[in-house]
Design a protein around this nucleic acid. Structure first.
Lengths: 340, 340
DNA sequence: TTGTAGGCGTTATCAA
DNA sequence: TTGATAACGCCTACAA
């Protein structure tokens, strides 16, 4: 294992001071262009690499962004992360990624690690059961920018990146109603989370506006897993008055639900029309293809990362913009088309 | 923005030396238990957080593992990453993740960043078109452990984590042959990559052992995208002698291929039996359900991370074990069952 | 069991 | 345009 080259080594070799070498390497304006060239070239030859710790220690910055997500392995989340990585990478930021596995406890631990790693900023989508956000206060107190996306929590000093979940819920439900559905089951997640609460709001709004009454028995709060979907299917079959519409706020869950319903002999969409959420690739594989809400995951990731980076560069202030809403829209496929 | 608390502040407050504080905070054995308690408690109260840069600078370690993958947003890869994150997190390592987007050029750049970030070790799955691995030599020269997984490249000083792709290819093909298939199309990726080359090897082996001749025209090298699947379907339909079996080395690609075939009126598995690869969730959604090779992504991630960490801890040497092979196996579903 | 002191590699300030 | 110097916060011989 060879010795690491430092700016001192370069300085000695060229008979410059370390300060000059440092400046040359950092494109400092007050340096003669030919000495700069000489120094960079020598550095390259000697196999120099800058020591980020020394630099970070000195500058009190890390060029690192922390990301905390519920899970890494969902199509939606990995798409978001792909977008973030792309933007961060281009701006030469590193991404430290950590998953809460849907538990506040791990989320708190992750936040702590991120804090100790001195990330320059933090991007968060909260866990299923997060209630308070005390564990993020440390960031806010220290002035470390914090940005929520998808599953957000309102906070004066943080921006949130979201889609209009209420509208999406409304659109999904209204579409089902227009297709003639009158008893629409809604399968959703923890109402603690904005995304699910808002979609439910949209669902209720659509019912109301179309003169249908809201029935609590038709709303199922689940963890949106595949099992939850299967379970929902069984509950639907057991209902005395058979529902004719189904709005599941997650494609994968919707699909597993559809599969059980189909096995039980129900025909989608004739017997029951179905709408999912996310526009996950499976929605185009299941038969009939699933009507769903298109959720711009990659864009969300890009914008979240870009906003944070802009804030860090001083070219935008996160504390001013409170909320960025991305476009989303209904993608109509066969699973919901009773007419036509 | 408040001032950062350092061990000096704690030392001053308690009238200890910074050295003692440092030792107490790091659980050094030679420290009285009550002073340790006092110090940790005071540190907590004062809102102290250790400065990783200073520490890293001093210790020449980062507790950070670099990961370079072709893409973040595939079900397989995000599952692998989930496994890595879990293990790394438990061992209090951070993960810096970067995607090459299937291009060597970005892979080289990522490697460089990782190098400059002074990761303690590197986990890599190479891009579609990577040929040489000069860009990783710097790591090897510096003694930074390097570990390949899935898409690996043989190197004396690196361990590879893989499944037995040859066997998997063999099993898939043999299964089709046992179902009565005689003209089996194989859709695969770049043969530069071990995974695809080995699966092809298995395919040929199975043909041979069952007395079927290998026909180059039946092998399609593609990028395994959805479009590639659709394309393959069209080429299959255009073949003068209609194939009766299809082995696609990626579930998503297999599914899109199946969809086009079905639209064209072919019946799976009667007209053509299909086997995929990865056991992606879609394989259980498409109809008929897709026979596939189960690929233990999460386990692979866990083992890759664990091996690297063990090596870093000195409890295992990566340069000795050259290759770790995980179990994989055929999952038979309806898409391939001609008999029964 | 605790303290002293030097250095890890940079960069910012001040002076030349 | 360049150089000297002092931090940045931590860790670890060595000494006590």
């Amino acid at each position: 294992m060879e010795k690491e080259i430092t700016i001192y080594d370069i300085a000695k070799r060229l008979n410059y001071s370390p300060a000059t070498v440092s400046r040359a390497l950092n494109d400092h304006p007050a340096i003669r262009i030919d000495t700069k060239d000489l120094i960079t070239e020598t550095a390259r030859q000697m196999g120099y690499r800058s020591n980020m710790f020394a630099s970070n220690l000195r500058r009190q910055r890390t060029n690192t962004i922390g990301v905390i997500v519920p899970r890494l392995n969902s199509n939606f989340m990995s798409t978001v992360l792909a977008g973030m990585e792309k933007v961060a990478n281009e701006a030469s930021y590193n991404l430290i990624i950590s998953q809460s596995l849907e538990s506040v406890k791990k989320e708190v631990a992750s936040a702590r690690t991120m804090f100790n790693s001195r990330v320059d900023g933090l991007l968060v989508s909260v866990a299923y059961d997060t209630e308070k956000i005390d564990h993020f206060e440390t960031f806010i107190n220290k002035g470390i920018p914090l940005l929520f996306f998808d599953r957000v929590i309102d906070h004066d000093q943080c921006t949130s990146i979201v889609i209009d979940n209420t509208k999406a819920g409304y659109d999904a439900t209204a579409h089902l109603i227009e297709q003639g559905c009158e008893r629409i089951v809604h399968v959703t997640g923890s109402l603690q989370r904005n995304v699910y609460a808002d979609r439910l709001k949209g669902y209720r709004l659509a019912l109301m506006e179309h003169g249908l009454s809201y029935k609590e028995a038709l709303v199922m709060v689940t963890d949106l897993s595949q099992e939850a979907g299967q379970d929902a299917a069984r509950r639907i079959q057991a209902m005395p008055e058979r529902p004719d519409g189904l709005f599941v706020t997650n494609d994968f869950c919707a699909v597993s639900c559809m599969q059980v319903l189909k096995q039980a002999g129900l025909v989608v969409p004739t017997d029951i029309a179905v709408v999912g959420f996310n526009n996950d690739p499976v929605s185009q594989v299941v038969e009939p293809n699933l009507t769903t809400i298109n959720y711009p995951g990659e864009k969300m990731g890009e914008i979240a990362a870009q906003s944070l980076i802009n804030h860090l560069n001083g070219s935008m202030n996160i504390e001013v913009t409170n909320r960025i809403v991305l476009h989303s829209g209904l993608v109509v496929r066969k699973s919901s088309l009773k007419k036509a």
